[in-house]
């Protein structure tokens, strides 16, 4: 395969349009040039940095380093899932639910892809594992955060309907069944949209990138199909598991609806989340 290599000059040419726009903003006093400049600079620095970090990880080919990188990516994704909702489950519940569902959906999907369809040597080769984990994480993050947000918002709204059923002797699982299904559907929407639009309305990014880099379109399409299937599978997994785990945290041994375990609060930062998890474990160890 022939790859098209880009020089800094090529990239500069692509930015020409933006430069003209920034100039216009300066002349017409639109005040947009600063915003655009900051965004462009951030994007370039972030991407260059990750490019060099990836090059390092690929060349070292160390399983420990790979695990560390994947662990970090997963932790950040879990925090994003936790932060999306205005409502928070007590005792870092959002983060715990996010971590559990993001990790299991991503690990399962990536392992399946690496051991069946892609099969690099060694099977954990960072050059394949990291981009795969990245793209799967992106879609899992979407699915899990939508699903969690739906559960936490709807359960508050539907409280009377759910508690009426409980009071009539209906089990918690049955009373919250419609909510679980709605959350699962909500989490799947982005990937369903993406799949139905693929090729007709949009050319998916991965495929476009590969075609631009010189790969045969049909080969690129096959890769895209593989990825779409993986992303769809992981989305269903993540949104279902997220809704189940969140609903489980909202009940107890007597099948009550425990909305007292839900608070309106700002999302935790990674630092405070880790601090509170450590405090939690220390308490458990002391017991």
């Amino acid at each position: 395969m022939t790859t098209v290599s880009l020089s800094p000059l090529d990239l500069g040419a692509a930015g020409l349009l933006l430069a003209v726009e920034a100039g216009l903003s300066l002349v017409c006093n639109l005040g947009l040039h600063r915003l655009v400049l900051i965004a462009v600079t951030r994007m370039v620095i972030q991407l260059l940095l990750i490019g060099y970090v990836l090059r390092l990880i690929f060349s070292l080919a160390s399983p420990a380093l790979l695990l560390l990188a994947i662990g970090l990516m997963t932790l950040v994704a879990a925090r994003e899932v936790a932060a999306r909702s205005e409502r928070q489950l007590r005792r870092q519940g959002n983060l715990m639910v996010g971590l559990a569902s993001v990790t299991s959906a991503t690990v399962t999907t990536t392992l399946l892809a690496l051991t069946t369809a892609i099969r690099p040597h060694p099977w954990w080769s960072p050059q394949y594992a990291i981009p795969l984990v990245g793209i799967v994480l992106g879609s899992v993050l979407n699915a899990a955060s939508l699903s969690l947000d739906h559960v936490l918002e709807t359960v508050t709204r539907d409280r009377v309907a759910i508690e009426t059923q409980l009071a009539l002797g209906v089990g918690y699982r049955q009373a919250t069944g419609p909510l679980l299904r709605a959350a699962l559907r909500r989490g799947m929407l982005p990937i369903v949209n993406q799949m139905s639009a693929a090729g007709l309305i949009t050319l998916p990014g991965i495929m476009t990138g590969q075609i631009l880099a010189g790969l045969d379109p049909v080969q690129a399409v096959k890769y895209q199909i593989l990825l779409m299937l993986l992303l769809a599978g992981s989305s269903v997994f993540a949104s279902g598991l997220t809704a189940m785990l969140a609903l489980r945290r909202l009940t107890d041994g007597r099948q009550r609806l425990r909305l007292d375990r839900l608070i309106l609060a700002t999302a935790p930062t990674v630092a405070t989340a880790i601090a509170s998890m450590r405090a939690d474990w220390r308490r458990r160890l002391q017991r």
């Binding site: 309907a161 009426t164 009071a167 089990g171 419609p178 099948q255």
Partner: peptide, 20 residues
Amino acid sequence: MPAPDWRRRVVYGASESGWW
């Protein structure tokens, strides 16, 4: 008793009725 069994025998009718 499992909670649903209890609630089916000791039934609570809240002042605000829920419909699902």
